[in-house]
Design a protein around this nucleic acid. Structure first.
Lengths: 236, 236
DNA sequence: GTCATGCTTCGATGCTCAACGAAGGATCGT
DNA sequence: ACGATCCTTCGTTGAGCATCGAAGCATGAC
């Protein structure tokens, strides 16, 4: 095929984006960036199991396709996902992808940890993420408004007491708050600037701690108690 | 790379699914199936601009990857998307894909039509879809409940008067109703069994008519008046 | 039965692209 | 200035796969 058939010519060209994700190495890199961190090229090469030369060419293609962004710092070059829409695409595809069969006990434990709590881009996901969103909606801290959520005055007060400055979060140019479909729970967790701020505060407080695989999160005992106390969020 | 690096081994294997979408021809076929219809192999070959032999091999791969399903009828073989999750993936990727530049006036008119009203899998999308969901929420016919919507008693009554049997829709095994992010409007429209039933009824009533490209929908004058009258849904 | 239609399988061709080693910047430490 | 580190560019190799025509296999029409 040299040209697109005319019947689809008025649509978005999804094949090139899918092609960027369709390579195992690039998919591994994107997945490694799914927690929203910036990683250096060498680190990504090591994680994906390829030579620096190979990694560099893949990163150049991902950059060209605007799936990632780059920031040079000294002789390091840090790459991160271009935005949460990219993370959304990856998680949406994961939703219909066959899960990789678990081979070792260690892997099985890690998978269980990820299902319990993890970061999705930069906000809380997994059972804990879903439970927290449920609790916030239940308590009226969040009010659904179409695709987004709003925070009423009393909700803003409660969040202020918790240590999240809602007016400051609102000033961010990023989407304020919205639902993000969770690929393990198949139900939404909290997205956007507010989701990120809440998650950051939870980690700051020591209610959540990063696991060895940095995407994984562990809920501490104080965290469990605090979440129940402040948000009425009960975790099994 | 012969094996997946251990760091991502506990996750879903997204690369193979992305690979299925990454080919222009297969992407064209999947896009053609986005309206939820079943199309014959020959039709898909023609739409994608390839020989029957080529189309057949692509369809076999899509079938193997469970992105589509097949039903044989006589000497025809009809293919359709495996489900709305697949449609969701395609639309999500479209969200971050560069739109194809418009070349002809005809294409520009068709693109405008698609933005105004179209089917997404089997439910109404585009400006009309977003406006209808807004109106339904505004009127209280739909109540947000996490990732899904519920219909209260008076909403059920209004829909019954319109010709949609909500209890029957509820009995479907499919998800009842939910938001589906619109890739042109970047705001949600109504999804699920209820979205499909509503859309079918709108077409039945002649309020919406299929365009030449079957995914496109045209709002008739009676439709415009009816939507405003019944749902308070105003279209520009 | 016989022919036409719709689709798939087979085999051959050619192109794309992932991978690596080697070499070439760029930056840091000393 | 000098080597060390980090990363990229270049050139080559090899594997995968999209494509088609021809042949095979069903089904439907007559």
């Amino acid at each position: 095929m040299s040209a697109a058939p005319s019947h689809v010519a008025y649509e978005s060209d999804i094949a090139p984006i899918a092609a960027l994700i369709s390579d195992r190495t690039r998919a591994a890199m994107l997945t490694a960036l799914l927690d929203g961190r910036a990683l250096a090229a060498g680190e990504l090469a090591r994680l994906a199991g390829v030579s620096p030369a190979t990694a560099s060419s893949h990163l150049a293609r991902l950059l060209d396709g605007r799936l990632i962004t780059m920031e040079a710092q000294g002789r390091h070059r840090y790459y991160r996902l271009a935005g949460s829409e990219v993370a959304r695409v990856l998680e949406t595809i994961a939703l219909i992808s066959p899960p990789i069969q678990v081979r070792s006990l260690r892997q099985s434990r890690q998978a269980a940890m990820l299902r319990t709590a993890r970061t999705c881009y930069d906000h809380l996901a997994g059972r804990a993420g879903v439970a927290l969103l449920d609790a916030l909606l239940d308590k009226g801290v969040l009010i659904p408004a179409g695709e987004t959520y709003e925070v009423p005055a009393d909700g803003e007060e409660l969040l202020a007491g918790f240590g999240v400055d809602v007016p400051a979060v609102r000033r961010s140019r990023r989407k304020f708050a919205g639902p993000c479909l969770d690929w393990t729970e198949r139900r939404p967790h909290l997205n956007g600037a507010l989701g990120a701020a809440l998650t950051a505060r939870l980690i700051d407080l020591g209610w959540l701690v990063r696991g060895r695989e940095r995407r994984a999160l562990v809920i501490t005992d104080t965290g469990r108690a605090g979440l129940a106390d402040v948000f009425g969020c009960l975790l099994d």
